[in-house]
């Protein structure tokens, strides 16, 4: 399930890169992001954009590395305002970013372990939609579930 055009179902080519200084200015000016992303700049922040529209960020993700705990903590994912709710034209933005977070966790030797401290009312949805499970008051996706997310959201048909 890489990015897809909601109407046509066509797969959309995209890339996920680290956010650079100039991006923060763009994000701050953009009416499409509600959270304060400048605060996140002390973390690892990634952006997702379509390859044919590199200037426009359609989603952001903030991660915190906890090497001593063998995990990446997912602080925040936000999709662009025009890609939320009924008006959205692109599917799977949050899923792709989440899968990328798991990939980072695999690359660092944490077996894909990505944690989250969720709002109680969203726990069931995160568990059902993305395969998170509870570790105390944190939720985490890891191991086979993390692998599944990466294969589904990030791999092309070639394998």
């Amino acid at each position: 399930m890489p990015l897809k055009n909601r109407k046509s179902g066509e797969t959309l080519k995209s890339s996920i890169d680290k956010v650079v200084k100039s991006d923060y200015k763009w994000i701050k000016k953009s009416p499409n992001f509600k959270f304060d992303w400048k605060v996140e700049s002390e973390n690892e922040v990634y952006k997702i954009f379509l390859l044919d529209s590199e200037d426009e960020i359609i989603g952001l993700m903030s991660l915190i590395d906890h090497p001593e705990e063998y995990r990446i903590h997912l602080n925040l994912i936000e999709t662009s305002g025009d890609q939320r709710g009924k008006a959205k034209t692109i599917e799977n933005i949050a899923g792709c970013l989440l899968a990328f977070g798991c990939q980072v966790a695999f690359n660092r030797g944490y077996y894909g372990f990505l944690s989250l401290q969720p709002k109680t009312e969203l726990i069931d949805l995160y568990e059902g939609k993305y395969g998170f499970r509870q570790f105390g008051r944190l939720l985490a996706v890891e191991g086979a579930s993390a692998k599944f997310l990466i294969q589904n959201y990030l791999f092309d048909e070639e394998a």
Binding site: F35, H73, L74, N75, L76, I77, E78, T79, Q83, R84, G85, K86, K88, I93, A94, L98, L116, Q117, P118, K119, L122, L125, Y126, K129, Y130
Partner: peptide, 10 residues
């Protein structure tokens, strides 16, 4: 719709 657009830690 929120879970589809936002994933965040409190």
């Amino acid at each position: 719709e929120l879970a589809d657009s936002y994933i965040f830690s409190v």
